[in-house]
């Protein structure tokens, strides 16, 4: 039972980090990119390659993985978002980001292979540490630090305030001279870096596996919807809730009910509290 709780918290932290990356991109573009989970997958694969195959030291591998994630985030904006948003108000970004996510997954599959591969140990620790193993707590530390860092970024920095301004009203922000395209690009790069960092930290838990992206995209979205779109505290709470529900459902009922229960949780929250646990109900004056 304790193992179920610890595993649930660890996987929940990964979902929370993906939800935070969703929030970053959503704040400036109102887009929920399907590539979000793939950015996380990329961090795991690049980190495993850099340390396991290229034998680079851990800090260099980390920098490489985060830079790779940032680049993938930027490509998401340039290829799948920029032109789509400029030309249409419809939700065509769903298709363009899905296409890019599929291409990214196929490319990684061709290059990296389709079997899960090991992620090297990041810190010197024996495998006998049980539930104190780094694979469980590293994702939790990264998710918590990312949530805290984003709060500080939004509150204390000029760029953070620009993100908030765009989140409130992108047209008004542009009218006040804010370079909205550049700010949106920056948010996608930051989301890519955050996703890759989470993937790197969770690599020992998930292995470096090319097909992980879509699962994380789905679970990150559920975490976001449960916690409340746009809320970083909500992303953390939603991720942890989803991880725990998944893990305890598997523990109690078996894995065949896991997906049903995850999606059931989403449905329940949408019915009872559509804005999510920490979301704010949008009021439109008429």
């Amino acid at each position: 039972m304790l193992a179920a709780l610890v595993t649930g918290i660890a996987t929940g932290a990964v979902y929370a980090a993906v939800a935070l990356a969703y929030n970053l991109m959503f704040s400036t573009s109102k887009v929920l990119s399907v590539t979000t989970g793939h950015l996380c997958m990329l961090g795991g694969v690049l980190g495993a390659w850099a340390m396991g195959n290229a034998h680079l030291p851990m800090p260099v591998a980390l920098a490489l993985a985060v830079a790779g994630g940032g680049l993938a985030g930027w490509i998401t904006d340039v290829v799948a978002i920029r032109r789509v948003l400029a030309r249409s108000d419809e939700h065509l970004w769903l298709l363009s980001t899905l296409a890019l996510a599929t291409m990214l997954q196929q490319a990684v599959g061709l290059w990296w292979g389709t079997e899960p591969k090991p992620f090297p140990r990041l810190l010197a620790q024996d495998f006998g540490a049980g539930l104190g193993d780094q694979k469980y707590w590293l994702p939790v530390v990264v998710a918590a630090a990312a949530a805290l860092g984003l709060e500080l970024f939004y509150r204390r920095t000029l760029y953070g305030k620009l993100f908030l301004a765009m989140s409130e009203d992108a047209f008004a922000a542009r009218a006040r001279g804010i370079p909205t395209d550049r700010i949106r690009s920056l948010s996608y790069v930051m989301a890519g870096m955050l996703g890759a960092l989470a993937g790197f930290a969770a690599g020992q838990l998930t292995f470096a596996f090319f097909a992980l992206g879509l699962t994380l995209t789905l679970n990150g979205f559920i975490a976001l919807a449960v916690g409340g779109l746009g809320s970083n505290r909500g992303a953390l709470a939603g991720g942890l809730a989803l991880g725990l529900v998944n893990s305890l459902a598997t523990y109690g009922l078996g894995g065949e009910y896991q997906q049903t229960i995850s999606v059931g949780l989403l449905l329940l929250v949408l019915l009872l509290r559509p804005q999510g646990l920490f979301g704010v109900r949008a009021l439109r004056p008429v």
Binding site: M1, A3, A4, T7, A10, T11, L131, L205, T206, F209, A211, L212, T215, S247, T250, Y251, G255, Q258, Q259
Partner: peptide
Amino acid sequence: DPNKTDLTD
């Protein structure tokens, strides 16, 4: 789930 991260339980 085939991608379950831990089988300790």
